[in-house]
């Protein structure tokens, strides 16, 4: 176990193993998203209430899932970095933050665009959208805090503490916003939460969610490799690798 952790902590080992994993992740991501998109856009039946506008669900829900999962992954990476001082974990956390913010933005944008045909307005203080907006602020805070430190190590540790504090707060924020929403708008129609969804609609959604997760893993591996190159640029193995690549 310890040997594994330390091996995993070595940027060189990670760089090698991720190169072998990446093609599989990309294959999975592209295949799942492609099949899910075609299925969801062209073959899934239209919703009996919302018509074809419900097809936004196939990007909105995976993006929203990813937005929350990336924050949790980032906090886990931060914990690993703080406890075992594994640098690769911090590199992963550093590249996850912008991706998570982008996914949160996508979830907000698609939710807002979905709101127009559904509610007749671009923005409603819907519980889900409001939590997403708060999540976006949390991401912005983590990114800004990391950038504010001149020393990379201090920035990394400060961002780690903040992501762990944030991840403890996310459920609290989510439940309090849900509670607040039911208090002010009892029993309104909420997008993406329905009692029962036909199987033909559900399958493409599952494919898209899995595809988005594969995409997240692939992009994180890719950008963590970049981060390794950036931070270890002076190391011997990196220079040899770059020279061999030329």
């Amino acid at each position: 176990m310890w040997a594994f952790i330390h091996k995993f902590g070595s940027p060189k080992w990670f760089y090698g193993i991720s190169a072998r994993l990446l093609p599989w992740c990309w294959f999975l991501a592209v295949a799942l998203i492609l099949v899910g998109s075609i299925w969801g856009l062209a073959f899934a039946p239209a919703d009996y209430q919302q018509g074809d506008s419900f097809r936004i669900i196939y990007v909105h829900v995976p993006a929203a899932f990813l937005a929350q999962s990336i924050f949790v992954s980032m906090a886990v990476a931060a914990l690993v970095f703080m406890v075992w001082k594994i640098k690769v974990a911090d590199m992963a956390a550093a590249v996850m933050a912008p991706l998570g913010a982008a996914m949160t933005f996508v979830a907000l944008f698609t939710g807002s665009v979905w709101g127009m045909p559904t509610w007749g307005t671009w923005w409603i203080w819907d519980a889900r959208l409001t939590s997403m907006l708060i999540l976006l602020f949390l991401y912005v805070g983590v990114i800004a805090l990391r950038g504010a430190f001149t020393s990379r190590d201090s920035g990394a540790r400060a961002a780690s503490v903040l992501s762990m504090v944030g991840v403890i707060n996310i459920p609290v924020i989510k439940y309090s916003v849900d509670w607040w929403y039911t208090l002010h708008q009892p029993a309104t129609f909420s997008i993406a939460s329905r009692p029962s969804m036909p199987v033909e609609m559900w399958w493409p959604l599952l494919l898209m969610v899995l595809g988005f997760y594969a995409f997240f893993i692939a992009i994180t591996l890719m950008r963590t490799r970049n981060e390794i190159l950036r931070r270890e640029a002076g190391k011997h193995w990196v220079r040899e690798l770059a020279a061999g690549d030329a």
């Binding site: 708060i134 602020f137 805090l145 430190f149 201090s154 903040l162 944030g166 924020i173 309090s176 916003v177």
Partner: peptide, 27 residues
């Protein structure tokens, strides 16, 4: 505590703290 070492931590401080305070505000 996170921003005390930064020369211009004021705006950053509110960015970090306000989202975390939302549950308290709601209740």
């Amino acid at each position: 505590a996170l921003t005390v070492g930064l020369s211009r931590g004021g705006v950053l401080l509110s960015l970090l703290v306000l989202p975390l305070n939302i549950p308290v505000l709601i209740f």
